[in-house]
Design a protein around this nucleic acid. Structure first.
Lengths: 115, 115
DNA sequence: GGTTGACTTAGACCATAGTCTAAGCACTAT
DNA sequence: ATAGTGCTTAGACTATGGTCTAAGTCAACC
C-alpha cells in the first residue's frame, strides 16, 4: 500500500505520514522503486497511534513507545507499564469530562429557565 | 481581589489572566490605584472559562460566548444554543474516550498475557 | 515524450495558547 | 529610600503538531 492510499485509509495526510516517519514513530519499508510500502502491520500501528493521540498522549511519548516496540518482545513489560500508566490518565480524563458535562448541563438548565 | 490572588485561586498564571483580558475573554474593573480588581462574578466567569477549555472549546469560541455575555440578557437564547451545541460535542468526545479506553484495555489484556 | 505521482532534504510557515522580558511609571510598606 | 508589587505596551520566544513549498530525481502510464 502506497502513501496516497494510506492517507486515504487513515485520514492522515501524506505530509503527516512522512512527518511521523521523520520523527521515528513509524518505520516503513520501500518497494523496488523506493516508494513507501505500508503493510497490514503498519496500518494497525498507525491506528494505534491515532488512538493514543486521541487520548492525549503527546508524540514524544508515542515515540518512546515506538522505540520499545521496535526493540521487540523483551520490551513487552515496559510497554505494558506505559499503557497502564496511560490508562490511569485516560480514566482521570474521562472523569473530568463527566464532571464538566454535569456542570454544563446545570448551566444549560439554568439558561433554559431564563430563556 | 488582586491579580496575584486570582492567579493563586484559579491556578491560572498572571500572564494568562492578562492575556485573556487582552483577548477580551474577561473584562476586569480597576481599583483607585488602577489595579485589576476581580470580584465574585469574575471568579465564577473564569471558572466557567476553565471548564469550557477543559472540554476542548477553543479560545475564539469562548470569546464569542464572552461577547454575547457582555451584551446582556437578550443574548441568553444564543448562549444557550452555543452551550447546547457544545454539549453535543462533549458527549461525542466522551464516547470517543470510552471507545479508546475499551481498545486500550484490550491491548493491555493482550500484553498481560504475553508478559 | 509529457504528465503523474512517488521520492529526497531543507526549511518556511501556520495556529493555538501561552510565557516571559524590557522599560518605565505608580503606590505602599519596611 | 528602596524593595515589592501592580500597571502599561510591545514584542520575542516557546512548545506542539502539523502543513506546504522548492528543487530536483526517478519510474510508470498513455
Amino acid at each position: 500500500m502506497i502513501i496516497s492510499e494510506m492517507a486515504q485509509l487513515t485520514q492522515i495526510s501524506e505530509y503527516t505520514l512522512r512527518y511521523y516517519e521523520k520523527k521515528e514513530l513509524i518505520a516503513v519499508s520501500r518497494d523496488a522503486r523506493g516508494r513507501r510500502n505500508y503493510d497490514e502491520n503498519d496500518i494497525e500501528w498507525i491506528r494505534f497511534i491515532q488512538r493514543l493521540k486521541e487520548t492525549g498522549m503527546p508524540l514524544r511519548n508515542i515515540k518512546k513507545y515506538a522505540d520499545l516496540r521496535a526493540k521487540g518482545d523483551q520490551t513487552v513489560h515496559e510497554r505494558l507499564e506505559m499503557l497502564e500508566a496511560h490508562r490511569i490518565f485516560v480514566v482521570a480524563e474521562q472523569q473530568k469530562w463527566a464532571q464538566n458535562l454535569y456542570n454544563l448541563d446545570a448551566k444549560i438548565e439554568y439558561y433554559r429557565k431564563k430563556d
